[in-house]
Amino acid sequence: MNVSGELTQALVVAFSAAFTGNILLTKFLGMCPFLSVSRQVKTATGLGWAVIFVLTGTCMLNWAVYRYILVPLNLEFLRFILFIVMIAAFVQFVEMVLERYSPVLYQNLGIFLPLITVNCAILGASLFMVIRDYSFINAVSFGLGSGFGWMLAILAMAGIREKLKPERIPKGLRGPGITLIIVGLMALAFIGFTGVLSGG
């Protein structure tokens, strides 16, 4: 395939990862931090950047590990364990580097980095990438797109939750209850993207 064709395909993959197959709103992955860190736009932005960064990084890393270590050794069944280890190691490493060289960024992202190690969206993206047999370029754009879609969803949710006035919401629904209802309604709306650029 020529270069421009590959780039177009990468764009399609990124778009469909962000909208058509939004990892949060269509696959419901990465729900725990989504529910707990979506109270304010500011913190949601921080977490969003961290997810984009880690998702893309681990997708690249796991692609290489899978392709050059697991497949040649016929050890594909180990990918679940290995991917989790790789993600944890990557996050730890990034945290250490950030702390040493960029204290400001560490201050901003610091709290969120360990949080997202256990985010199932990260592992989910790596596994999808393997199932769909993406090339390296596509794996990178898939990671970027998924992260962007996740950030978009949590930003929208944070905006909504800042606007919500809890005093009139039924008592039992305040907090996680109403948040889940809102995600459900957002997911309902995202069904409209079904079929948009889902190829690739």
Binding site: A158, E162, A189
Partner: peptide, 10 residues
């Protein structure tokens, strides 16, 4: 409805 979700963020 999608844009309703993004209205507060906007």
């Amino acid at each position: 409805v999608i844009m309703n979700a993004f209205a507060p963020l906007i």
